[in-house]
Every structure is written in structure tokens, then in C-alpha cells.
Design a protein around this nucleic acid. Sequence first.
DNA 1: GTCTATATGACGATAGAC
DNA 2: GTCTATCGTCATATAGAC
Lengths: 203, 203
Amino acid sequence: MKADERREQILHTAIDLFSLKGFSGTTTKEIARAAGVSEAIIFRHFAKKSDIYSAILDDKARHDGMKFPWEDDAELLDAIHRKDDAKVFYRLAINALNKQQSDVGFLRLLMYSALEEHELAERFFSEFVARVYGFIGGYIEERQRDGVMREMDARIAVRAFLGMLIHHSLNVILWDKRKALLNITNKEAAENFAQILLRGIKA
Amino acid sequence: MKADERREQILHTAIDLFSLKGFSGTTTKEIARAAGVSEAIIFRHFAKKSDIYSAILDDKARHDGMKFPWEDDAELLDAIHRKDDAKVFYRLAINALNKQQSDVGFLRLLMYSALEEHELAERFFSEFVARVYGFIGGYIEERQRDGVMREMDARIAVRAFLGMLIHHSLNVILWDKRKALLNITNKEAAENFAQILLRGIKA
DNA sequence: GTCTATATGACGATAGAC
DNA sequence: GTCTATCGTCATATAGAC
């Protein structure tokens, strides 16, 4: 295996393990064993254990992990254009829920790194989350100017919306399968959350 | 210092450290140093490191940490009795936000233990969160029967509400101080979230 | 009840052969 | 590029003196 491939393979193995057990809960020996190489190989590709952690976000950025929920959704962009609010918030919700839950490892990793106050979470926050606030908040402000939504700090509405979505995904990932306190499809969840927010902020 | 006091002291020192760096990120040596005792003392009071972790929830339960947001709030109970929905949801929100943010360490600890799938989070979930769902969900169902709130799964409304609250508190704890993406008082947040939810689910 | 001293193993990281 | 073997350090946990 070439150096680049091996490096990628180690990185993805490490992402899986870090997302399961956190940074300090994962040993280089485990990563090596899971990747099917010796520990020494790890340290040929990454000088320090923490270098693996730092490389994760670059890898995500290079692949599709940092794509925005609206980039590929023609239906959403069309709804925005037509100012079909119900559709806009439903599409935003369903995209967010599906994406979050399709990459459980990354969401767990983000939580870990936020708690550990690692650069990873901070960069994700300023590069990704801030733009989401700008995008959704911008749409709400536009609709406020149209007189369709009531006057309020649009960022609070965004926080409420993202709060429902992220909290629900975390619940699905961490609890619902075993505990089943609330067992609904993402479609149901997205419809309900979109409707609650929309009725909640309309004029 | 008597055994009980020393045990409590070690426990609280450990809670602080676990909440900052997680279970595997905290060493018994650090706990000992922070508590001002030798490492051997730790292992006299707790046979294994993980026993400290397990003892945390019992300690919380013995103290005030597991109290319900409505137990001490006469204003809330009165509002429920009078069916003053706006007041009910505002009081629930402000209580939750204040409590979550007054015990940052515990919230961080819960997040860590949820990710680590430790008993701690699971017990908190089934002993505390489930009852919150029952309480708030019960009130919503009552108001649905009154015809004041629209037909929907009340648990979804609860999840949306708790999502706003918990997500906002996590943002405050983990980000807002440094990044200031959204700097509002808990009062403002509670008013807005309560209003969004209420308008969102009323008939 | 607390200490010093230490056992035992796992940890991150390196050296050197192939 | 990969391995085996090993380093020094730090981890959890224990023994025995005071």
C-alpha cells in the first residue's frame, strides 16, 4: 500500500475509534491493531498521536463532510426562491437530520472534541455552523422584511431550530434505539419541527 | 478528616476533573494532587477508579442535583393550575436554563458519560429525563384535550422544547463566551423559546 | 487515616533490520 | 513501507510503616 493510501486508512480507522471512545480513551495500539499494521507505522505517518486528531477535519473538508445542507438540494433552493416557507424549513430539517445521522461517528467526534476543547470543534464551528446561522438567519430576516414573520432576533430562531434538530439526532444516536422513549422517522420529526418553528415565528 | 468527609472531598474533586477532561483523560494522580492527598488514599476510599465515576450519581441524587425544575417553583405550579400557558413554558424554560448553566460541571459530565455510554448517563436518563417528558408531555396533552393545543404527538413537542433549551445551554457553556455568535440573557432566551414552542403547538 | 515505596502493566514513541 | 523489539514514562493498584 502506498504512503497516501496507508495514511488515509489509518486516519479513517482512528476516526472510528476516537468517535467511539474519545481521544484519550483510544490508544495508538488499538488504532494499529484495527488498521492491521504495527504501531510503528502509525508513528511513521503521524509524528504524534494528536497529529491524527488534527488531520481529521482536513480530511472531512476534502471529502463531503463539510458540505452545506442546501448545496445539493434543488428542491430546497427552489422553495427558497418561491418563498415556500413550509417547504424551506422542512427541507432544511430533513437534510440536517439525515446528514447528522448518516455520519454518526463524526457527530460523536464533534461532541468529544467540543468537550475536550480541541481545535477540531472550534474550526467546525467557525467554518460551518457560523455559515448555517448566516444562511437560515438571512432567510428569516428576509421574510421578516416581507412582513410574514414577526420581529425578533433571527439568530434566536435559528438556535431554536438547530437545537431541535441536533438534540433529536443526539437522542436518536445515543438513546432511542435501546430506550425508545420516542420512536419516530426523520420525516415525521422534520415535519413536526419545521411546523413548530414556522408557526412559532410567523407574524 | 473523617472517612466520610474525605470520601466526599475526593468525589467532588473527581467530578470537577472528570467533567473537564473525561474519565480516561483524568488520572488518579491528578485527583490525588488536586485533593491534597496521596494516591493511596484514593484507593482506600474507592477500590477502583471506575468506582468513583459510579458514585457520582448517588452523590448528586443525595444532594439537590436531581431535583425537578418544578418542585420549588410556586409560580410555575400556580401557572399550571391556572392554565396560564405562556407562564408555564416560560417558567419551565428559565428554570431549566438556569439550572443547566449553574452546574456546568454536571452537564459536561453527562455529555461525556453519554458518549462513553456509561451507566451514569443512562440512569440520569431513565430516572430524570423520562419524568420530565412525562410531566411536560402530560400538561400538553391536557391542553390538547382542552382544545387549546393542536393534535400532535406531545412527546415531539417536548423534544423540540428540551432541544432548544439544552442546545442553547451547551452553546453558552462551550462557545458563546469566546465566540459570541449569540449573546443573550437566559431571560431573553427563555421568553423566546417559550413563545416559539407555544405558538408552534397551539391550535 | 495517612503516608512512602513499589509492583505490574499499558502507554506513546523510537531504533534498526529487512 | 513494514516489521520486531524495546525504551522511558506514566497508569492503576497494593503493601506495610506510622
